[in-house]
Design a protein around this nucleic acid. Structure first.
Lengths: 223, 223
DNA sequence: ACCTGAACACCGTTCAAGT
DNA sequence: ACCTGAACACCGTTCAAGT
């Protein structure tokens, strides 16, 4: 419970800040744990405080209300994922359409899967409040990134890249969510990991015109 | 508010049963309305009862607890969708892979979209309790139906039909959910309606071997 | 600067009493 | 057979008091 105070060297405010940082972290951790074991419905401010080893009043010093606490969790998770996707987009710029597709799918799967525990906890609260609103903002940002990325493909030009980026995100996000919400069973995760890249690649292929004219160009458009 | 009592001709118990039916329906409606305007978080047994024009006690005569009320809503909605999908499957048996794919996607979109209001209300509670469990059962049923359907395709044989059916459902379910949860905006629904069938068709094509050997068989497998 | 916990309004659920 | 609503335990949130 007592932890070293890593910020202790800093001036005046430091010791107290280190304590409060620990407090916030404890609250964060306690919330995730309770969310996983008991679900949103049974998540109680009293219980969070108890588990975190602080009093309710303390919790309300950092979060104006329970929603804010949940909101903070979702934000942290979404930010991590958005960052991962933007990194992936940077790495994939100018590659072939297949490479881009596989790269995006892998990055998404990795990001969501890296913190299955957190992801699952968060799906339970994602439908609440203004959280939907915030989710929208973040995802617009990701759509932008993917749209831009698509236009850089070296071997094809994607028609209506914005719609395609939107659809890609909906398909990836939705299918992963479905599997994680069902309990993230290994067998189902395996299927997802094997099939999702295929889904993306095929969809991208049909949405693009190859750059070099080829006699079998049809192959890349509709079946 | 007063409604004709359609079962009034029936013997003894009828009038009272008609009354209770009306009560249950009023509660159901009130719940959906409140869910849509205020969200799950603000859904209160008191408020539901008030809106439905009955007392709290009455509500507890039909639903042992609040969860049960929500559970009933989800069940009704899921049952309607499962039925729609099974109908579609029956109609599509023995058709071409393309026809099957388009048919499934259309049926799914129609079923979810027919009751956008209900669908949205329900996403908000889908993560709760044993509801996840029930969802699983229903979806196994739908996976079965689609798997069977896939094996009847007239012009191709689908490899690993169960995995493909699972993935199809995850992709359709997830992407539609994403769009509805974001507020079911017309522009986004339009994109979904245009692109989802493509996603499905391409994925199915790559997962199947054509039945008649053709020189350009490659076209139907990986790009 | 940060923490505590009793106090208050409100919610889920029950049950004795009504028709 | 169905309905009512006061009553109880518990939750979210506040705030005066502590260190």
């Amino acid at each position: 419970m007592t932890r070293p105070t890593p910020l202790a060297l800093k001036p005046r405010k430091s010791p107290s800040q280190a304590r409060s940082t620990a407090t916030v972290e404890a609250i964060h951790t306690a919330t995730i744990q309770l969310l996983l074991t008991d679900g949103v419905a049974r998540l109680t401010t009293t219980r969070v405080a108890e588990r975190a080893g602080v009093s309710v009043g303390t919790m309300y010093q950092y979060y104006p209300h329970k929603e804010a606490l949940l909101f903070a969790l979702v934000t942290a998770q979404l930010e991590a994922i958005a960052a991962a996707m933007e990194n992936a987009a940077a790495d994939l710029t100018g590659r072939s359409l297949c490479a881009i597709s596989d790269g995006i799918a892998a990055a998404w799967l990795d990001a969501k899967t890296a913190d299955i525990v957190g992801s699952r906890a968060i799906y339970g609260i994602a439908a609440e409040f203004d959280i939907v609103e915030m989710t929208r903002e973040r995802s617009v940002q990701m759509i932008d990134a993917i749209e831009t990325l698509l236009t850089t493909a070296s071997d094809a030009v994607v028609a209506r890249p914005r719609e395609v980026a939107f659809m890609l995100l909906a398909v990836m996000g939705g299918s992963v969510r479905t599997v994680l919400e069902r309990g993230a069973r290994d067998e189902e995760l395996e299927v997802l990991r094997a099939e999702l890249p295929l889904v993306c690649r095929q969809y991208l292929a049909v949405s693009a015109h190859p750059l070099a004219a080829r006699s079998d160009a049809e192959e890349l458009t509709r079946v």
